[in-house]
Design a protein around this nucleic acid. Structure first.
Length: 865
RNA sequence: GGGCUCGUGGUCUAGCUGGUCAUGACGCGGCCUUUACAAGGCCGAAAUCGGUGGUUCGAAUCCGCCCGAGCCCA
């Protein structure tokens, strides 16, 4: 039985171990009915070595749903995965081993990644288990494992076959540091110090000089045009002429375009291949030629003449010096400007032209929007983000990456005609760098040499397949179809996701799975907010405001953190607050102590006897609470469920009911009380189980069951009939008597001589009398001797407002002036008659008899002492 | 620069399909040993609901503008 003080450190670790050992949260493979299965597709975290509050928060919310659903009789599938084939893992491996990925063949480097990430993942697993999240650890995956590589490549081939992919030479955002193409979403803006250079250009025909301002003089050789703003009258005469580029001497057209920024510099701009995003737009809009001066490693090309072979930085310095010497450099000044940088490494990006694979998105925007609409969004408002993202899409999705670690494209190209040769589904996973293509000769031209594709997939191309990975999607060569090993899981019942990555992760997952299966992959999406610090600022390394979960969990029980996590509406950001955890800790202590008391008062549950009034009242109240809490869980309104449960348990059960039951059971065998106290308590444990997973388990196994509380059914209403009116009135009388004692500085067990109650407390008289230590308690059938003084009229505005509209102020003025009369339940004021439902007479009652009267909203209580 | 979200007692939060004295918790003050819990119980003080203008008989709630924070996208 529960005894002594609650010791979370021992208790929590004990159950965490046993849950894993005993497979408490095992998904039952036999389950086939999609209606009884509840499948969760958790987005796999990136392996970076440490668990942060975002993980704790997100997984705890998922766990609430998992535990609740399990108790509601669903076969819960709660898997776990790692996204470990991205740049983060690649860098982790490089740092850990002190190597550069360029120095190894791809498969060797991948092997190193697997080894390094495996260590971090093992540590992460332990921490996850120490959070008590009800994951089935038999279902895990790594996005870098061969099985997932196969699924990724199958996905590529399937999309290709469906005409959803294409290869195109197109401007690409390039990180010279990582030497890879990156997508738009992987870049961010950053303020960087730089220099503005005023460079003298001239008109080719007449030699008229004009000034170009640029931050990138190293791109002079890549200059393909000069632009003038259409509103720039002073320079309008240049339009249509040709300009001669200094040092390099190429002639370029002078054109007009409204995208010229007239605020900065001279108002004349050079367009290069490619200095920035606008250059790409100009290249497309004005059909300009390409002059590629910087290659993929950030080195100057032949296009840069004598500067070829230099790094772009070296070339910049040399070119600036040469411009200066030749008299072309008119000014050079320091500025700070916004540049596009790669979010991972902070290097300013370049824009190159390269052959890339794309997934088509733009042509099916409407369909993808509709797919999003078909999912239930918790909270609903987050659908807007998905919608805005789709509506704002401008580019298809580039999935090519030039990296060592990653999943290879299963493609070769004919060395002669460039025809694309895709791998056979049966041979996947393949690595074209090592493996041979499935044909000996090109089907188009018969040539027998092939060039392997050496790019790998964008990491999102794989992490957007998690529903398929979890469901065991694969190609069956015999049936010639895609099949799922666990089809009952798909579509998944719930997809959890942070609100910061709805736009690409969730969106890409919906798109890919929808294309492969023809079905929207999720019935519902649950969006979680970000964890902020105590001052409501997002935690980040650069601000140094990170609070590590490890530290906190040394001080507080996991259940307290779980209590905290339930403290905000789903989707809203949640500040980390020690106070929130302390409140949780207090609840654990209260639950523990109350359980000790329950066990000491009644150590077994008798068969259900005829229940006394207060007992059926408590159980009926609990029924109503269960209904409320169940509904809140279903709607993912955890904080409402939590607060209502806590408050009902603490105040109604502990403060009101237990105090009364304590005396009844203390005085001798009261079967009705014994039945009720244990029945209610047992149901409380089940209700608390999704939130306070550990303590509920500890007490449950001590008092009620051999199995886990987490595999017990969720409580159903008992259907007990009760006089709610009398029960609540009785509790208000007890409250009034407590207040009387407090006001008179009496101890709570002080005796009261005589109490008279006017109000319906039928069947509760004895309970009130005993718990408040009343000598004689009498109920009155008629109102006691009171003097009523009308102090005013309260209008019911929901009735009066719509009825009288602008005349309301007149009515109010009449009441204020005392210029009214109440007769036969009708109020006459300001020439109107109000019915009884439109107002309430406000009376002050003064008791004129012996003793003191206390008024509650349900009863009048007179105390003589 | 654009979109979305948020801004309620000292702190966190409910209410936000408009309707009397704005919910609860933490903290604070006072009182009380009810042999489960004093890390408890009871009572109390404390908010012009970010600012401003409007719609309305009536606005925390609806609309406009402004300020601040966060996320996403330029």
């Amino acid at each position: 039985m529960p005894s002594g003080e609650y010791d979370p450190e021992t208790v929590e670790a004990k159950w965490q171990d046993r849950w894993v050992e005993e497979d408490t949260y095992a998904y039952h493979e036999g389950a086939v009915d999609p209606n009884t299965v509840f499948s969760i597709d958790s987005p796999p975290p990136t392996v970076s070595g440490s668990l942060h509050w975002g993980h704790v928060y997100g997984f705890t919310l998922q766990d609430f749903v998992a535990r609740f659903s399990r108790m509601r009789g669903r076969d819960v599938f709660f898997p776990f995965g790692y996204d470990d084939n991205g740049i983060a893992s690649e860098r982790l491996t490089e740092d850990e081993l002190g190597v550069e990925h360029q120095d190894f063949p791809r498969h060797e480097f991948q092997e190193m990644c697997r080894e390094v990430t495996a260590e971090y993942e093992a540590e992460f697993n332990e921490k996850m288990q120490a959070l008590g999240v009800s994951i089935d650890w038999d279902y895990t995956y790594q996005t870098i494992e061969p099985r997932v590589q196969r699924i990724s490549q199958l996905s590529f081939i399937d999309l290709y076959d469906r005409g959803r992919e294409y290869r195109q030479r197109a401007p690409t955002i390039w990180c010279p540091e990582c030497e890879t193409a990156i997508s738009q979403v992987e870049t961010e803006d950053d303020e960087r110090p730089s220099h503005f250079h005023d460079i003298e250009f001239s008109v080719a025909d007449d030699g008229e000089a004009f000034v170009i301002s640029t931050t990138r003089p190293e791109l002079l050789s890549a200059c393909v045009a000069v632009f003038v703003h259409p509103d720039d009258e002073a320079n309008q005469h240049l339009v249509g002429e040709e300009a001669e580029v200094p040092l390099f001497g190429q002639r370029v057209p002078i054109l007009k375009d409204e995208r010229v920024d007239v605020e900065t510099g001279s108002g004349l701009v050079m367009c290069c291949t490619f200095g920035d995003q606008t250059d790409i737009e100009w290249y497309q809009a004005h059909d300009l030629p390409l002059r590629i001066a910087i290659d993929e490693s950030g080195t100057m090309t032949e296009e840069a003449d004598e500067y070829a072979g230099l790094s772009s930085e070296e070339a910049r310095e040399r070119i600036v010096a040469d411009l200066d010497e030749a008299g072309y450099l008119l000014d050079r000044r320091s500025i700070t400007h916004t540049v596009n940088v790669h979010e991972r490494c902070g290097t300013p990006v370049e824009f190159l032209v390269a052959e890339q694979w794309y997934v088509k998105l733009l042509d099916k925007r409407e369909e993808y929007l509709e797919a999003g609409r078909q999912m239930d969004w918790y909270p609903e408002k987050m659908f807007t983000r998905y919608k805005n993202w789709i509506e704002g899409l401008q580019w298809d999705w580039s999935i090519s990456r030039q990296r060592s670690s990653g999943i290879p494209f299963p493609v070769w190209y004919c060395a002669e005609c460039d025809r694309e040769i895709l791998a056979d589904r049966e041979q996947l996973p393949v690595d074209p760098l090592v493996d041979d293509p499935p044909v000996g000769a090109c089907p188009d031209c018969g040539h027998d040499e092939f060039v392997p594709e050496d790019d790998v997939f964008d990491t999102w191309a794989t992490s957007s397949l998690t529903p398929l990975i979890n469901a065991g999607w694969d190609w069956n060569g015999e049936s010639g179809k895609f099949e799922m090993e666990r089809p009952e899981l798909y579509p998944f019942d719930m997809r959890p996701q942070g609100h910061d990555i709805i736009s690409f992760w969730l969106f890409h997952t919906v798109v890919k799975c929808y294309e492969h299966t023809g079905e929207v992959p999720f019935d519902s999406v649950m969006i979680n907010g970000m964890v902020l610090d105590e001052n409501r600022v997002k935690m980040s390394k650069s601000l140094g405001n990170i609070v590590s979960p490890d530290e906190v969990l040394e001080k507080f029980p996991v259940d307290a953190a779980r209590y905290w996590a339930a403290g905000s509406a789903v989707g809203d950001d949640l500040p980390y607050k020690e106070k929130g955890l302390r409140a949780g800790e207090k609840l654990l202590r209260k639950l523990w102590n109350a359980s000790k008391l329950v066990e000491s008062l009644a150590d077994e549950t008798p068969d259900r006897p005829d229940l006394k009034a207060i007992d059926s009242w408590l159980l009926a109240e609990q029924d109503a609470e269960i209904e409320y809490i169940t509904e809140k869980f279903e709607n993912r309104e955890f904080s409402k469920a939590r607060d209502r449960l806590r408050s009902f348990f603490w105040h109604t059960f502990c403060d009101d009911y237990l105090e009364i039951a304590k005396q009844r059971l203390g005085e001798g065998g009261d079967v009705s009380a014994a039945y009720t106290i244990r029945t209610a308590h047992e149901r409380f444990l089940r209700l608390f189980a999704p939130f306070l997973a550990h303590i509920a388990e500890e007490i449950w196994r001590d008092m009620y069951g051999d199995g886990s509380v987490h595999n017990e059914p969720w409580p159903e209403p008992l259907g007990v009939e009760a006089d709610f009116e009398a029960g609540e009135t009785a509790m208000s009388v007890v409250g009034a008597l407590r207040k009387y004692k407090t006001d008179h500085q009496l101890s709570l067990n002080a005796t009261l001589d005589e109490v008279r109650v006017y109000g319906s407390v039928d069947g509760f008289e004895e309970d009130i009398r005993r718990v408040m230590h009343v000598e004689t308690l009498e109920t009155l059938d008629e109102e006691p001797e009171v003097e009523s003084v009308i102090t005013g009229i309260d209008l019911d505005y929901s009735v009066v407002g719509p009825q009288y509209g602008s005349r309301v102020p007149e009515i109010e003025a009449g009441i204020e002036a005392g210029d009214y009369a109440v007769e036969d339940g009708v109020l006459r004021v300001a020439d109107v008659e109000l019915d009884a439902d439109a107002f309430e007479v406000n009376e002050e009652r003064r008791y004129t008899g012996d003793g003191e009267m206390i008024e509650t909203d349900r009863a009048l209580v007179i105390v003589r002492n």
